[in-house]
Each structure stands twice: as structure tokens, then as C-alpha cells.
Simulated scan of single mutants.
Amino acid sequence: MDSLDEAVAALGQPERECLERLIALARAAAPDAVAGVSYGIPVLKVGGKPLIGVTASARHLAVHPFSPAVVDQVRGRLGDYSLSTGTIRFTPEHPLPATVVVEIVRARRAEITGSA
């Protein structure tokens, strides 16, 4: 088990299931990504750079694309989610749409690799 899987496995339900789904979508969209830690956050990395990270707090879950530009790219489809410069917050009851997760991963991967 890698650091990302270990961090998620430590969570209770329904948070664990929600983040497992998000990570599975991210891994499918970026099969070359590897698990790691960046800025103290469990992440998937591409080319040694953080692709996407996930965290859980008492009130919400969060995905971190490490890119304000990527958050801005999907902002229009996330009207009722809490957003900040590099973070998108959600709950298991109101998870991120799969299409948005895939778009986030593909956009961030393109930033890292310099290809679309």
C-alpha cells in the first residue's frame, strides 16, 4: 500500500469511499502517476511534481490540484462548492462530479508535462 492509499484507508466511511472513488478516477486519467507526499499532503505525482492531492477535515474533504489556473478552469461547473486558490472542498454527500475530477487531472497533467 502506498502513502496515498494509507492516508485514505485511515478514514472512516463515507469519507474513505468518496476519496477512493476520486483517486481511482485520477489514476485512470493519469496512469503514469505515482503516489507520494507533497507539502505534507498525500498526492499523486507526475514527473516528480504534485498532480493532485486529497485531504480530509472534520467538516469537508478537499482536492488540491496545486494550480490556481486549473481551479479557475473548472470553477464554472462548481458553483455550489467551496473553492479557494488551489483547493476545492466537497462532502461525501455532495462529491465532485467524475467529469470534473478527470478534467482537473488532465489539465494539471498538461501543465506538468507541457502537453495537452
Rank of each mutant, 00 (worst) to 15 (best):
R21S: 13
R21M: 04
L22D: 13
I23T: 14
A24H: 01
A24N: 07
A24Y: 01
A24Q: 12
L25H: 08
L25P: 01
A26T: 10
R27W: 09
R27A: 11
R27D: 10
R27C: 09
A28G: 11
A28M: 02
A29H: 07
A29M: 05
A29K: 06
A30W: 05
A30P: 07
D32S: 15
A33K: 06
V34N: 04
V34E: 15
A35T: 05
A35C: 10
A35F: 03
A35H: 05
G36A: 09
G36Y: 12
G36F: 12
G36W: 06
V37S: 13
V37I: 14
S38E: 07
S38H: 14
S38T: 07
S38V: 08
Y39R: 12
Y39K: 10
G40F: 05
G40W: 06
G40D: 12
I41F: 04
I41M: 14
I41A: 08
P42A: 08
P42M: 06
P42C: 12
V43F: 00
V43G: 09
V43Y: 01
V43W: 00
V43H: 02
L44S: 06
L44T: 06
V46R: 04
V46K: 09
G47E: 12
G47H: 09
G47Q: 12
G48M: 05
K49Y: 02
K49Q: 15
K49H: 11
P50W: 05
L51G: 06
I52C: 07
T55L: 12
A56L: 08
A56I: 10
A56N: 07
A56F: 05
A56V: 11
S57E: 04
S57K: 11
S57R: 09
S57D: 09
S57L: 01
A58P: 00
A58Q: 14
A58T: 14
R59T: 15
H60A: 14
H60T: 11
L61K: 10
L61H: 03
L61N: 06
A62I: 04
H64M: 12
P65Y: 08
F66S: 05
F66M: 03
S67D: 07
S67C: 08
S67P: 10
S67L: 00
S67T: 11
A69E: 15
A69P: 04
A69C: 03
V70Y: 03
V71A: 02
D72F: 02
Q73C: 02
Q73M: 11
V74I: 13
V74P: 05
V74A: 13
R75W: 02
R75F: 03
R75E: 13
R75A: 14
R75P: 00
G76K: 06
R77E: 15
R77I: 00
L78Y: 09
L78M: 09
L78W: 11
